[in-house]
């Protein structure tokens, strides 16, 4: 039953992509609506800047529309789209490099409902720790932990070997745990 639903979803998406490839903007709109939030959140987790995340998402979908004919159905559309979005985000970050400073970022506070001051501080600290990771490790942990992509998909998106995915993931997790260790001990 579950696999039937999954297969139907995949078949529907493949059909929509094919229509979009033939220039059907309405079909493309369906793809945008189903992937927009995930792409935006992935970029936001990379840079912690909502405006930049929105701009990069828009740029990614524009590039996606323009290069859709180059997409091959053998690979996952989501992975292909993420690759475009990551490149778009890096391009925007590079353009704004002079103004970009992690310490200056206004990290949006989590929803204040049912959260103590300590919990909010802890989450802000966690976001800071993610941002302090090297970009190469940061993107790997985001794709794994938030997008639940497999090692192979991450390797495909970033065009790196699986072994590199494993080592970057390990480095990111170890660094985050080290960064958060004093806090966890205090709790």
């Amino acid at each position: 039953m579950f696999w039937d639903t999954v297969n139907n979803d995949q078949a529907n998406e493949a059909e929509t992509i094919e229509k979009a490839k033939n220039g059907d903007f309405d079909a493309f709109s369906v793809l945008v609506c189903s992937h927009r939030e995930a792409v935006m959140n992935m970029v936001y987790r990379m840079c912690a800047d909502q405006q930049l995340a929105e701009d990069a998402t828009q740029e990614a979908f524009i590039r996606c529309w323009q290069h859709l004919s180059q997409y091959r159905t053998l690979s996952s559309f989501r992975a292909w789209l993420y690759r475009i979005a990551i490149n778009a985000a890096y391009d925007l970050l590079r353009r704004e490099k002079d103004n970009f400073n992690i310490d200056d970022l206004q990290i949006s506070e989590e929803s204040k409902v049912e959260q103590t001051v300590e919990q909010r501080q802890h989450k802000t600290k966690l976001r800071q720790a993610i941002l302090q990771l090297p970009p190469a490790s940061r993107i790997v942990i985001i794709l794994r932990e938030y997008e639940q992509l497999s090692y192979q998909e991450i390797a495909d998106i970033l065009d790196i070997p699986i072994g590199t995915v494993m080592s970057r993931l390990n480095y990111a997790r170890t660094s985050l745990l080290k960064e958060l260790a004093p806090q966890q001990e205090a709790q």
Partner: peptide, 25 residues
């Protein structure tokens, strides 16, 4: 434990509606 903490971080919601986003694209 780290995974649980990472999952607790919420995402963002766009300030633009889907229609406006598509129109801009």
């Amino acid at each position: 434990n780290l995974r649980k903490e990472l999952q607790s971080l919420s995402g963002i919601i766009s300030s633009k509606s889907n229609q406006r986003f598509l129109d801009e694209i």
